[in-house]
Design a protein around this nucleic acid. Structure first.
Lengths: 134, 134
DNA sequence: AACAATTGTAACTACGAGTGTTACAATTCG
DNA sequence: CGAATTGTAACACTCGTAGTTACAATTGTT
């Protein structure tokens, strides 16, 4: 994962959890120190994952729609990161015994790594992140 | 990790381990199905990590200089991937309680993930990969 | 009804990483 | 000497990401 989206998403959700109500993308952007549109793009991922919901208009904004105890870092990771953690070379030679089977061999490796990462991220909830801010 | 370098490096080392001697970058490139220079670039990483050595000239090429039982997938990963697995947003606002501490909080998370990935990759040796090709 | 604030999204630019390619000096074998 | 090979530099191309501007749609306020 090469993007800042996961880090920004955790930041955003921690802000919303502490607020306990709605925040505008403008407010969030000030804390994350970026453009409100960047925030709204990430909120779009989180909304599609069912973690937040947003309303238009004055006094609008976004808020959590799942309690922080029920949101794991893996839920956040899955919502914003779609790329593969480890890439498998896609076009090896079929004429070589190694090239022919390298993909399935590496598939086992990447499956193991993904499972390990998922297990690690599932172990921490958003509520624990919020508590660590004091 | 967004690159194919790890997958290609495992492929290359599996070829060298099976050969038990030297292979030219041209030969390796045919199995991986890419350009010999791409192979030589990855061999450069592996050489600097002490896993292979190369000689110029006719009848030259590269070969393993550590036995496959002593090379873990983590050794290979470390040799070719330098980027961070998870990025931490680098410039949050210092005026916000969350922005001020988000970096150290995420540092703990990334440390845990890195440790989990390392443990997983250390568990598999190149010799096991080679055996799985039959 | 009109206005203002806000979201959600499209379009564009800029930038960096990765891959593939050509080129070439250095090395080494025959 | 000549051929083969490495190691590396330089360049083009593509792709993903971040940031920015713009704007229709929504919604609360007056």
């Amino acid at each position: 994962m090469a993007s800042n989206r996961f880090a920004m998403a955790v930041h955003i959700l921690a802000l919303l959890a502490r607020r306990g109500g709605t925040m505008t993308s403008e407010e969030v952007a000030r804390s994350v120190n970026t453009n409100p549109v960047v925030i709204r793009r990430i909120l779009g991922h989180l909304r599609r994952a069912g973690l937040v919901c947003g309303v238009s208009g004055p006094s609008g904004g976004s808020q959590l729609c799942v309690s922080p105890e029920k949101i794991s870092l893996f839920d956040i990771y899955r919502a914003v990161e779609d790329g593969e953690l480890i890439c498998v070379h896609e076009d090896p030679s079929r004429r070589c015994p190694v090239g022919r089977r390298i993909q399935s061999v590496l598939e086992n490796v990447t499956t193991g790594v993904k499972r390990a990462v998922a297990k690690e991220l599932k172990a921490t909830k958003l509520s624990a992140i919020v508590r660590s801010f004091g």
